[in-house]
């Protein structure tokens, strides 16, 4: 009897606490669901607005409502007759070229810094760290004049911009170096014992293993030119034919144009966002891996 009593006394509060915890858990989960739904709405609403407003026909400026009164494709047709086509093509060419070239450069750089131990290595890494502390815009003043002398600005801004993006991309090696660091060195050594040269090790052993980071690098390199504003603005310098989408569409929201181009901006935004977003969602896994890995390894 006595023993049972004790057990009962001990058991009841524990059971009660358990019940209480369960209730608390349900409440907190409900709150979390509400928060998550609210967040999803807040994060998605602007994009839904952009899509809705891109179909608006009756007024072309900013208005106080979201759902169009008259639906139509006028804005998308307007894009075809404006310079937008040129900007889009420019950006697409730049993005493709940068995706390929930058990936090659970043991989060269990060693989070397991960695998080789040479005399200048530490100095080089420290030097690049310091170099990265200078604002990148600063160099644009001179680069613009030099590229202008070479005929790579304004109308010919596309090759000029590719050059600018790619040339300094070696400094962004951190994420992929972190990845290479996680591939065991013993793999290299085993292959070297079997008589492979360093180049063969890279091509035949490391690269196949590095597929996630290659995809991550290609993806980020491809996405960056779509959003770059400041370099593109410098290099194209007021010449519409050399602009990318960001610089071109920025001018649509200037005070003198916004009342006639606002809905076209929305339509342009949709056209720009769709291919990038689809690509991104397909390769999302690799992006997430790269971002989380990169932050851990600093």
């Amino acid at each position: 009897m006595k023993k049972e009593n004790i057990v009962m006394e001990q058991g009841q509060p524990r059971l009660k606490r358990h019940m209480g915890q369960k209730a608390a858990n349900t409440i907190s989960n409900t709150i979390i669901y509400i928060l998550l739904i609210a967040m999803s709405v807040i994060w998605l609403l602007p994009f839904i607005f952009i899509v809705l407003q891109s179909f608006r026909v009756e007024l072309r400026g900013p208005v106080g409502y979201v759902v169009p009164q008259t639906w139509g494709l006028d804005n998308y047709r307007g894009l075809l007759t404006s310079d937008f086509k040129r900007w889009y093509l420019n950006t697409f060419i730049i993005a493709l070229a940068v995706a390929v070239l930058q990936t090659v450069i970043v991989l060269c750089m990060s693989y070397t810094l991960s695998r080789f131990r040479f005399k200048m290595r530490d100095g080089l890494m420290r030097f690049m760290l310091v170099l990265g502390m200078f604002p990148g815009i600063l160099g644009m003043i001179i680069l613009y004049r030099v590229l202008k002398d070479l005929g790579l600005t304004q109308v010919n801004a596309v090759p000029g911009l590719i050059l600018v993006y790619v040339a300094s991309s070696g400094m962004g090696y951190y994420v992929s170096k972190g990845f290479f660091d996680t591939i065991p060195k013993s793999l290299d050594e085993a292959a070297r014992v079997d008589g492979a040269t360093r180049a063969q090790v890279l091509m035949k052993i490391i690269l196949p293993l590095a597929k996630p980071i290659v995809i991550y690098t290609v993806l980020t390199a491809f996405m960056a030119p779509w959003g770059d504003f400041v370099f593109a603005k410098y290099i194209s310098f007021g010449t519409s034919a050399g602009m990318n989408v960001a610089v071109g569409m920025y001018s649509w929201l200037n005070l003198d144009q916004i009342s006639s181009r606002y809905t076209m901006f929305c339509a342009g935004g949709v056209v720009v966002a769709i291919p990038v977003t689809i690509l991104f969602l397909c390769l999302q896994k690799y992006y997430v891996e790269g971002v989380t890995g990169g932050a851990v390894k600093g």
């Binding site: 994060w43 998605l44 994009f47 960001a246 920025y250 929305c266 966002a273 990038v276 991104f280």
Partner: peptide, 26 residues
């Protein structure tokens, strides 16, 4: 849902939201 918003080029979202809060904005 959240990651989706990373994919959309920032200049679109920034410019749009910027105009949304303007004096005669949405």
């Amino acid at each position: 849902v959240l990651v989706l918003t990373i994919a959309i080029p920032q200049f679109i979202s920034l410019l749009y939201v910027g105009k949304m809060f303007a004096k005669n904005g949405l």
